[in-house]
């Protein structure tokens, strides 16, 4: 198994089933040139393609929560588009750092999930955050047939689902 640390949590993956999109060499180029925002990684797990962002906290203030939602949802959208560029070897996103398994174009035709894992947040606070995210992400999720628009869990739930150790 491969372990990757993000936001103070150790994520566990099967070898070859994770693509560290945020750390790919083209990342600096596309963030400065295209203004793209990229999520932490993409993982193929349980026959589903997951775009994952890990956070060490979530804001309580309303305005800050809206900015937080906008930033993270933008990361999911851009990462999906960049991943399409990677699979099709588009000039700005051609990659030598992706495993052959993760370059399987069929994954795009299957189930896609956007997953946000927030460390330390109480379970009772998750629904409110999810409501804000779902409202913001509904249109994009609808266009790509992503249902629900986002999955949000805390570190305890991620651990019980075998996502982190």
């Amino acid at each position: 198994m491969i372990i990757q640390e993000e936001s103070g949590m150790n994520f566990v993956f099967e070898p070859g089933k994770m693509y560290s999109i945020e750390k790919d060499t083209f990342n600096n180029r596309i963030t400065s040139k295209c203004g793209a925002k990229i999520c932490d990684f993409i993982v193929y797990k349980d026959n589903k393609l997951h775009f994952v962002e890990a956070k060490s906290s979530a804001p309580r203030d309303k305005e800050e929560l809206y900015s937080y939602t906008e930033e993270i949802s933008q990361k999911f959208y851009d990462s999906l588009l960049v991943y399409i560029g990677v699979l099709f070897d588009r000039k700005n996103t051609a990659s030598n750092n992706i495993s052959p398994q993760m370059k399987n174009r069929k994954y795009l035709a299957g189930t896609i999930k956007f997953v946000l894992v927030i460390k330390g947040i109480p379970k009772s606070g998750l629904q409110d955050i999810k409501n804000v995210f779902e409202k913001a992400m509904r249109k994009f999720a609808c266009l790509f047939s992503i249902e629900p628009p986002v999955i949000i869990m805390n570190d305890e739930q991620a651990k019980s689902k075998g996502w982190i150790e």
Binding site: K113, K123, L126, K130, P148, I151, K161
Partner: peptide
């Protein structure tokens, strides 16, 4: 919420 999470993940 957890029931929904079980269905989603």
């Amino acid at each position: 919420y957890e029931e929904e999470l079980d269905l989603d993940i």
